[in-house]
Every structure is written in C-alpha cells, then in structure tokens.
Design a protein around this nucleic acid. Sequence first.
DNA 1: CGCGATCGAGAAAGCGCTTGCCGAGCGTCC
DNA 2: GGACGCTCGGCAAGCGCTTTCTCGATCGCG
Lengths: 369, 369
Amino acid sequence: MTGNTPDGPTAPSLDAGSRRSSPATLEDVARAAGVSLATASRSLNGSSRTVNAAYRSKVLDAAARLNYSPNLSAQAVARGSTMTVALVVADITDPYFSSIAAGVVAEADQGRLIVTMAATERDSERELEIVRTLRGQRPKVIILAGSRREGDPSEEALRRELEDYERAGGRVVLISRNELGFRTVQIDNASGAADLATALVGLGYRRFSVLTGNRELKTAADRLDGFTSGLERAGIRVEADRVVQSAFTRDGGYEGMRSLIAAGVQADEVVFAVNDVMAVGALSALRDAGLTPGADVAVAGFDDIPTVQDVWPTLTTVNVPLVEVGRAALRLALEETDASVSADSDASTAPGSPVATSVVVRDSTPRRA
Amino acid sequence: MTGNTPDGPTAPSLDAGSRRSSPATLEDVARAAGVSLATASRSLNGSSRTVNAAYRSKVLDAAARLNYSPNLSAQAVARGSTMTVALVVADITDPYFSSIAAGVVAEADQGRLIVTMAATERDSERELEIVRTLRGQRPKVIILAGSRREGDPSEEALRRELEDYERAGGRVVLISRNELGFRTVQIDNASGAADLATALVGLGYRRFSVLTGNRELKTAADRLDGFTSGLERAGIRVEADRVVQSAFTRDGGYEGMRSLIAAGVQADEVVFAVNDVMAVGALSALRDAGLTPGADVAVAGFDDIPTVQDVWPTLTTVNVPLVEVGRAALRLALEETDASVSADSDASTAPGSPVATSVVVRDSTPRRA
DNA sequence: CGCGATCGAGAAAGCGCTTGCCGAGCGTCC
DNA sequence: GGACGCTCGGCAAGCGCTTTCTCGATCGCG
C-alpha cells in the first residue's frame, strides 16, 4: 500500500490531510495511551491477565477519546473463533420463522453475539448450499429452523456438512424435530396435535378433515399423525380423501381448502390445518366460497402465530412459544460452550424435554350443540 | 514438477491422526496443489490477475478435495473490508419489517453478501447503541429500517455515528424517510395517504378519524399530514379529537380504537390507522366491542402487509412493495460501490424518486350508499 | 539483607488471507 | 539476433488483533 513507511519520525500519513477516515486501530490506542499493544489489548478485552489499574484507565481513556471499536474480523482471526450465530429459516416473512428469529436475536444480544440470517425458500438444495457457504463465516452456532422432507436426497450431504462443522468446533441446533442427530429444541408436534384432537372431540366434533402441507415434510407428518392418533383414541378415523396435501404456506392452505370445498364440506366438520398460516388461508378460501368459517365449517391450526388473534373468527390452535423457542435454541447451543448459566435452566428449556404446547380454543371452533 | 514434493519428509500434520478437525486453510490447499500461497489465493478469488489454467485447476481440485472454504474473517482483515450488510429493524415479528428483511436477504445472496440483523425494540437509545456496536463488524452497508421520532435527543449522536461510518467507507441507507441526510429508499407516505383520503371520499365517506401511532414518529406524522391534506382538497377537516395517538403496534391500534369507540363512533365514518398492524388491531377492537367492521365503522390502513388479505373484512390500505423496498435499499447502497449495474436500474428504484404506492380498496371500506 | 517467588509490561510470533514487487521465462519487433 | 516488453509464480510484507514468552521490577520471608 503505502510502501514501507518507517512511520515513527516521518509520520507520512498526516500530510495526506483532511480526508483521513479509517477507524482507530488498537495500535492507535496503544500509542495514544503510551503503552504496548499487548497491554492495550489486555485492558480492553483480555480476561486472563490483569492490568495495572493506572495503565488500564489510560488505555480506556485513549480508546474512548479515539472512539475505538475493535475490529471483530481481526479478533476472530486472532482468536480462531467468531461471535456469530447463523440462523437459517425457510421464509423470513412467515410469522413462524420471524417469531423464532426474534427470539434468537433477542437472546443473541444479551451475549454480544451477532446473528446472520439466510433464507432457504423451502428448497433443500438451497439449504445445503447455504450451510456450505456458511462455513466461510465460521459461525459459533448454526440454527436450522426449517423442517426437512422425508427421503430428501440432499439430507445426507447436509448431515455430513453439519458434522464436519461440529467437528471443527461449531454447534448445530435444530428446531422442532431432531431429523439429523444434533441438539434440538423439540416441539411436541405429535402430542400437541393429539391434544387438539381431543379438545375438538370434546367440543362435539365428529368429522374431521386435514390440510397437510406436503406430507413429506416431517413436521407436517408428525402433526398429522398426532392428530389422527388423538382421534383414534376417541374411536374416530379420518377418511383418506379428507386429508389433502398442498404447500406448507398460506396459499397452500387456501388451495387445499378449495379442494376440500369442491369435494363437499359439512357443517359438523372441522378442518385441521397443520399450521396457522395454512389455516388462515383456509379461512379466506371459505369466505371466498361464500361460507362462514366457524359456523359452516370449523377450522383449527397449529403454532399460535400472532395474527390468528386478529382474523375472524379468531383461530383455535395449538400454542407454541415461538419466541421462546428461538431463545432456547441459542441457549442450548451455548450451553457447554459457555460452561456457565447451566444451573438455572428452567424445565421448559432443558435439553431433553420438548417445549410444552397447549391447545387454545377460540371462535373458529364453536361448541357443537 | 510434481516429483520433488519438498514438504514430503516432514509433513507433521498427517501423523496427528483421527481427531483433526479445523477446516482446511489456504496454505493446506496451496501445499496440496504444489503451488504458492499467492497462486492459490489468486486462483480462488484474486480477480486482478490471471493464473495459468493448469495451475488454476490444480488449485481448484485441491480446494474441492480438501473441502476448502475461505475464512471470511481473514479475508476481511486482509482486504480491509467485509461482505457484511447490517440490517437494523424495530421489531422482527412485525410484518412490515420482516418483509423488508426478506427483500434485503434475497438481494444480498445474489451478491454473496452476508446480512446481520439487530432489533431496536423501537427504542432510540438502543438503536444508537446497536449502531455503535455495529462498527465493530465493519459492515459494508448499514440499513436502518425504522423511523425516528421528532425531537429525539439521541438523533444527533446517531447522525454523527453514521457519518463517521460513511467517512470510513461504509454506506448508510435509510428506509421510508430521509431523516438523517443519507441515501434513502423513500416511501411516499404523504401522497399515498392523500390518495387514500381521496379514494375514501370517492367512496362516499365524509367523517374521518385517525389512529396515529405516536405522532412524533415521523413516518406516522407524514401519513397523518398526507391524509388530512388529501381530505382538505375535498374540503373536509378531521376534528382534532378524532385523531388519537397510541403505540405504533397492533396493541396500539387496538387501544386507540377502543378510545375512539368510547368517544362514540358513527356508521358513516372511516377510521384511518397509519399502518396496517394498527388497523388490524382496530378491527379486533371493533369486534370485541360488538361492532361489525366495514358495516358499522369502516377502517383503512397503510402498508399492505400480507395478513390484511386474510382478516375479515379484508383491509383497504395503501400498498407499499415492502420486499422490493428491501431489495432496493441494498441495491442503492451498493450502487457506486460496485460501479456496475448502474445503467439498468428501473425507474421504481431510481435513487431519487420515491417508491410508488397505490391505494387498494377492499371490504373494510364498502361504498357508502 | 539476600534470594526466590510473583507480578505484569512489552516484544514478537502468529491467525488466515491478500497483494505489491521481483524476476524467470518467453514472445516479439526491428 | 539482441533488446525489450509481457505474463505470471512466488516471496514476503502486511491487515488488526491475541497470546506466549521473556525479563525487569517488586515483594515476601527467613
């Protein structure tokens, strides 16, 4: 760049004049404080060794005066590890994921961690590619929030990639379902759905349809299975042609509901959509077909995303504490890395036990007379 | 030339055996390919200089074999600049922000950029603090998506911080409103609101109330001003006591609507909430009060977030292409940095002109007889 | 009062990568 | 056929930081 610059006596950088700009470096601080680089570094971060109070405050003063802020990349290189948490979601605009993201971000900045986001757009090839490029970041943690599909050909490659990553010292955390053999914030999809089934039977419903977003999606499958087995306990079976597959999205719910309507719906029936965004789409499909959700056909969802309290009728669903799930994911990742805070982990976030879900009955499933 | 293998005899890294873990470095690749570090670096990234095809492919092979992935932190240190885009939002769960975030993320990974997220929780102190800690990341771009308040005491500090950042080579982009003198993806809040007012008058409404989330919020103020001046063009004034302030959130909308109801609402009235989440809250407040939105009181919002198509009645609002706004923000930031792609920027994202908004009339504002 | 133990500042060696510069090899031009 | 470029590897000097190690100074203790 500027050549050799013996720097001391000549100080060539000053004559350049007014436009100097780059942020202060640790060396600037050390020089300004009249101490060595090592002492400056230790005063500002170095935990393992103490620094004489007088020196320390000289350094702190100088740092404040120069508005010094350590270059995180350089720290990462020197330390061999970053403060980055990588969050991989399917779709940021989906409230399910944005709630989780909010939790991760909230937890992260209590630990001075940086969170980076990437979106798979529900494409497992893209997910794999994202995880691959993530390696370059050398994140401390990778959190995978989306569910994977049954029999996905790239799953094995993903697992290997993640195993390599953990072998290099990283931590992987999965959300919802342990599909790959890593730490997981489990959401009890099956028993949540079973509880919902029980509650609906209790409300007097006897006919059931299911909007299952892509049955191959393991989360969707768990919810469907839980739901049907909950019904079985009451001696009720869901007819195969009343289980319709569609995309795991709002539009998927809309389309699925349309085909259900086309096949004929009954007034004593409840349609269970395996997630809330689909349920919300289903409500709209009903209305667009001239039906009144709740009265003509009951609807229930899963997740309890914020918006379901503002649709009409308000949606019966299974609450999942999504923001808390996001926080728990990060805590779980850091658990043994930090070697602290391990004692006070409350039951709801304990490594093994799944996050508790609870049925919330609202207006979309009125009690049958 | 492959015969000599100068490193053969010593090769100390191999005997370590099974537990080796850290990712391959460029040096590993260079050694495996039998070339120098420089050549390896240039083959894998170095743009300015060409590398003999034979060498190049040896390097590429070795890199693939070792599953090499360049350490981004080290690159950042060596190059003096990162590939990071920092996005600062008020609240990730708010669809307004998550839509913008989705746009930023989508645009980012077309440019191999990494996006990091932080949430201010609508607290300007926190915002300032976030921007300060962001400096450590040395991001290439900082995108500020939230609006600021009139007369905020920390605004000046924020501006200085951002100016320092730009002086150091960064790029700041604001969204919605140029409150601080940086590049901005402007959203035409005032004229969008004015158009909405005109449309509502056209539908036969003559009485208006406004739910303004914290009047000090400049975006809220612009929308209010635009709305009232649109009405003035039709010779209509909004009575001062029909403008209620509350939080810029769903709950704020709910509370605001409650107080409007308490003061008495009329059937020929439309309540304009300055954003959609507030409007959605208002709808719920109406229903909880036993009123039927649309029929008893009309409601309109602003932003056209996805959910407003699924509430009932569907919400009349002003469309803002939020995802596109996010993309445009990043493009705008990179514009002169990249020194390319500058020609084909379509009109909607041209630096100066605000993003186009358009009124969308739905069921929440039926035509008055 | 002397000697080992302790403390803590500073020099310096990295961390993984980029890039300015040198110089070997080769083509080209008159 | 000789001088003059060019092209392109490789050396080595960084980038901003951490951390080991060295070593002088200080302290405690008998």
